[in-house]
Write a protein that binds this DNA or RNA. Structure first.
Length: 254
DNA sequence: ATGGCAGGAAGCTCCTGA
């Protein structure tokens, strides 16, 4: 079984990239973030034509999440129970016995911003939600754009980013509280190349210069981590014309 | 020198992203 995550930064612009990638990689589940699209405009037929079902929660201009699956997704939930949030950032579904949670964690903008306070509050809510999902389903995979670089090894220039949003102690503590629920960072289950990143700024030739961050993650409960044989970041889509600024990340489970 | 690039909605500019 293959499960993957990709922040596409507008599904409208990136649709062909996603279709091509699905056909090449054939994941059983692909979590998408930043659809920037109302539900009424979601390209259901385009995915159906290549054998994928879609469940999605979108809005105009910002945010928006989806899970694409080969088998029909079951027990679909949107948002976090008990947490009213107009921003569409969470969708979850059961796929082949695995509880797949797709998240687009807030960016936070800057430490001084109200958006940063929202991000930290949102992360506290996420911790409760994931704990509840683990209690209910057992086997949980939490995939998405976390907007958190967990360690300095995940940052091209830790000194430059020290104390900056995406790298603050409070955000990293929230990440490790998720780990503390009994999950593992899939990517770090295996030896990986140094300077492995999933996002590169569009500006200043960030990708070509390797100026990136690892902020897209796949967390796995212990039983799924045992089944995991590989986690890769696919750099190829980032090399295409008009790419997303994020690369997809994919885990293989036995 | 807080710039740079991209997407969306609006509309000839601004907000957001990370």
């Amino acid at each position: 079984m293959k499960i993957a995550t990709w922040n596409v930064n507008s599904l409208n612009v990136r649709l062909q990239h996603v279709l091509d990638w699905l056909q090449a990689q054939k994941p059983d589940a692909l979590c998408l973030q930043e659809l920037k699209m109302e539900d009424a405009k979601f390209p259901v037929a385009a995915f159906d034509a290549i054998g994928y079902n879609a469940v999605f929660s979108g809005q105009k201009t910002y945010n928006g999440v989806a899970i694409l699956t080969r088998q029909r997704a079951e027990d679909v939930t949107m948002g976090m129970p008990g947490y009213a949030d107009e921003q569409k950032r969470v969708i979850a579904a059961t796929v082949d016995g695995v509880r797949v949670i797709c998240v687009y964690i807030p960016n936070g903008q800057s430490v001084e911003s109200e958006k940063y306070a929202y991000k930290l509050a949102w992360l506290e809510q996420l911790e409760k939600f994931v704990q509840s999902e683990i209690a209910t389903y057992g086997q949980v995979a939490l995939l998405g754009d976390y907007n958190i670089a967990p360690a300095d090894a995940d940052v091209h220039d830790p000194a430059q980013w020290f104390g900056q949003v995406l790298c603050t102690d409070a955000e990293r503590a929230a990440f490790f509280r998720l780990i503390g629920l009994g999950m593992q960072d899939g990517y770090r289950l295996f030896p990986q190349a140094e300077k492995s990143f999933t996002w590169w700024d569009y500006r200043m030739n960030g990708f070509k210069r390797g100026l990136g961050l690892r902020i897209d993650h796949i967390l796995l409960t212990a039983d799924l981590a045992k089944r995991c044989t590989e986690v890769v970041i696919d750099l190829e889509p980032r090399k295409l014309e008009r790419p997303s600024d994020h690369a997809p990340v994919m885990a293989t489970l036995t």
